[in-house]
Every structure is written in structure tokens, then in C-alpha cells.
Simulated assay, not measured.
Amino acid sequence: MPDQPLFQLDALTIAFDGMPVVDALSLEVNHGETLALVGESGSGKSVSALGALGLLPANASLTGGRRLDGLDLSDLSPRDWRRIRGSQVGFIFQEPMTSLNPLHNVGKQLGETLRLHQGLTGQAARRRSHELLERVRLPRTTELLDAWPHQLSGGQRQRVMIAMAIANNPRLLVADEPTTALDVTVQREILALLAELRDEREMGMLFITHDLNLVRHHADRVCVMHQGRAQETGTVSDVFSAPQSPYTRALLDAEPSGRPSPVTTRSALLEARGVGVSFQRPKRLFQRRPAAFEAVKPLDLHVAPGETLGIVGESGSGKSTLAQALLRLVPSR
């Protein structure tokens, strides 16, 4: 492993129209390591990564040092940035539905990054796209290449984003809240996949999150931010077992705990029996109409006053459809 850090920020300061939002942030990401950048919403995590890699609007001003594998990033031309982003640095943005282009199918979006950075076109690009989707463990890759973003589940869209991010074998992977809005089973699979890809390719990963539980299990070191400033940096075990900053201690103490109060009555505030939802599949020309898709199989539920009923399941299991059916927002039986 090389001695010098893969990615380095030295007193990075960012301001918008003269108003500072990040103050003298310094951090390092080593080869094959995951550094978690942690803090509450608005602490400056995402803007620090975007600023360090030249993705902020024109009204942003930056000072301080930025280096990628020894290359000074402070005075790169737009052409140099286009060469680096997507090839040497891969991004997984917070919300894949807004990051993927709704007007292009998955194959075209993967093919575009392969064309720009590797010159692959036509069948060569499509073969490589197949390989990338298989590498991130997506099934039915031929079908998915021709699918549109709105036809994919949240976990599938996130895996497509990962495939695009690793398409050109980047040295640094920036993952900005990569499991937001994903259920816990898909979340675990995504994070395990990222760790596997990091180890396989000896990438460094900057993992931006506010979820301390994810940091505890999936990062090597952690940098805690608050109001644009780094509060402390260290190994995950050191920071979690003996935090030095008062803010870090407060952040750790704020992790949810406890149990709900017992419900004193079983009278029904909401009761449903045999609720089911089906959707008709489209009929193709000269073919019989296929059987309806059963999104929610018949089920019963009961909610008492003062009670919280948790509806839990993977993406596509029917949770939201059930809620919409109870509110008569979708037809049900």
C-alpha cells in the first residue's frame, strides 16, 4: 500500500457569497480504507466532498489544499476535472431517483460513462454494462439494461448508481448517504457490496452519513463534523469508546433507546379485514391479457388508540401500497 494518502484535504474552507459553510477541514483517506464523514444535516458533510472535487456552483469560493494520489486539485481546468470525475473518482449520490436521468434507460446511462472515459460504444459498451450489472448482483441484466429508472425499486436504482460509479475503476469512491430510504435488508446488502468492491479494487472510500450505527459497522476511521468544522477524527473504536469532543459525546448519547409504553386498550381505532390490492398487467397485441399482479395479498390489521403499528418489509413488499389502500388512494378489495 502506498505511503501517501489517496485523498487529502488540508484546511479546506468553503463559503457561498462570502458566508462560510466549511471552516478549515482537514482529513485523509488512505488506499483500501473507508473514512466516514459524520454529522447532522447541515453540518457541511456533502458540501465538503462536492467542493473538494469541483462540483459547487460559481458563487462558491474555496481555499485550502486538495490532493488526489499526489495530484494537486486546486487549479485544475474544466477539462481536467471531466477527465478525473467518473474515472479516478466515482460518486454515489444520496438519491438515485434524482441522480439517474429519467429520460434515458439504464443501458444508455451506463454506456455514456463508458464512452466518455474508455471509448467503448455499441456492443462492446453493452457487454461491459452487462458485466457491471452482474457485478453489483442485479438479476435479469438484459431486461434491466432496457428499463427506465422509474421501473426499478430503490435498491435496484442504488445498485445501478454503484455500477456507474465503479465502471471506470476509480481510485476514490465518494458515497453520499448511499442507503437513504432503503430498507434494512437492502441497506445491509448495499454496504456489504461496497466493502467488497473497496477491498477487491483497493479503493479508498469517503462514506458520508449521519447514521452512527452504519459508521460503527462499516467504517475504519471517522471524522465528526458540526457547523462546518471537524470536531474530532480517529479510528471508529477510539471515537465510539472514548469520544473527546463534547459534540461527539452528545451525538452518541442521542442514539435512540428504550421501549414504547404498553397500550392500555385494545379497542379498534383502525381495523381492516382481508385487504388486498391487485394491478392489471398491460395486454399486448394479439395476446391474452396476463394474470393480474397481486401487490398485497389479503391481510387483517388492527390499531388501537395510542398504539403504533410498524409495517416492515423489503422494497417492493407492498408496504406503501397497503397504506394507500387503507386511505382509498388505490383501488382495493
Results as ranks from 00 to 15, higher is better:
residue 14 I to N: 00
residue 15 A to I: 13
residue 15 A to C: 13
residue 16 F to H: 12
residue 16 F to L: 12
residue 17 D to T: 08
residue 17 D to F: 05
residue 18 G to N: 12
residue 18 G to K: 09
residue 18 G to S: 13
residue 19 M to L: 13
residue 20 P to K: 12
residue 20 P to C: 14
residue 21 V to Y: 14
residue 24 A to N: 14
residue 26 S to Y: 10
residue 26 S to T: 14
residue 26 S to R: 07
residue 28 E to L: 07
residue 30 N to G: 13
residue 30 N to W: 07
residue 31 H to V: 11
residue 31 H to I: 04
residue 33 E to A: 13
residue 33 E to V: 10
residue 33 E to H: 10
residue 34 T to V: 15
residue 34 T to G: 09
residue 35 L to D: 09
residue 35 L to M: 14
residue 35 L to A: 12
residue 36 A to G: 09
residue 37 L to H: 07
residue 37 L to F: 09
residue 38 V to F: 02
residue 39 G to R: 07
residue 39 G to P: 10
residue 41 S to Y: 12
residue 42 G to I: 11
residue 42 G to A: 13
residue 42 G to H: 10
residue 43 S to T: 08
residue 43 S to V: 07
residue 44 G to N: 07
residue 44 G to D: 09
residue 45 K to Q: 13
residue 45 K to L: 14
residue 45 K to N: 07
residue 47 V to R: 03
residue 47 V to H: 04
residue 48 S to D: 05
residue 48 S to K: 01
residue 48 S to E: 05
residue 50 L to W: 01
residue 52 A to E: 02
residue 52 A to Y: 01
residue 53 L to F: 03
residue 54 G to S: 08
residue 54 G to A: 07
residue 55 L to W: 00
residue 56 L to S: 00
residue 57 P to N: 05
residue 58 A to P: 03
residue 58 A to G: 05
residue 58 A to M: 06
residue 58 A to Y: 05
residue 61 S to F: 03
residue 62 L to N: 04
residue 62 L to S: 04
residue 62 L to Y: 08
residue 63 T to W: 05
residue 64 G to Y: 02
